[in-house]
């Protein structure tokens, strides 16, 4: 059985790849063609897709077009923008950052970059 997290991921992948907004029904049919879509050969219920969509909406990843029935959904920003944002979080020095995640190399200042070049250049 695919977990809710897997479904969120599949839905986002579809929305990021889609040129325009999609309804939950269309999404359900598209999910059926992905590996996560047919858990034990059963069809996914539209309500499950709607649950996933409202979770994603709460996280600010998905927005809903309310002017048509049924509502159509699309991704708020592109995958690349989200990735850039996440990596920005990683690369920028914030309070307690080093306690949240441990980077292989912290940010290097110009002085330090010079010292490193000197150490390794010789």
């Amino acid at each position: 059985m695919a977990t809710l997290g897997d479904l969120e991921r599949t839905v986002m992948d579809l929305l990021w790849a889609a040129p325009e907004a999609m309804t939950a029904n269309v999404l359900r049919d598209s999910i059926a063609h992905t590996p996560a879509g047919t858990p034990a050969g059963r069809e996914l219920a539209v309500t499950t897709v709607l649950t996933v969509l409202s979770r994603l909406e709460k996280k600010g990843l998905v927005e809903r077009e309310r002017d048509s029935r049924p509502h159509r959904y699309r991704a708020t920003t592109s995958r690349a923008d989200h990735t850039a944002e996440l990596m920005h979080d990683v690369l920028v020095t914030a309070p307690d950052r080093e306690a949240v995640l441990a980077r292989f190399i912290g940010n290097v200042s110009e002085t330090e970059a010079q010292t490193l070049r000197k150490l390794l250049g010789g």
Binding site: L91, I105, N107, E110, T111, E112
Partner: peptide, 15 residues
């Protein structure tokens, strides 16, 4: 292009 500025709390740790 979106390389954030390097602000470093503890200089020379990597060196």
């Amino acid at each position: 292009p979106s390389q954030p500025e390097a602000i470093q709390e503890y200089p020379l740790a990597t060196a």
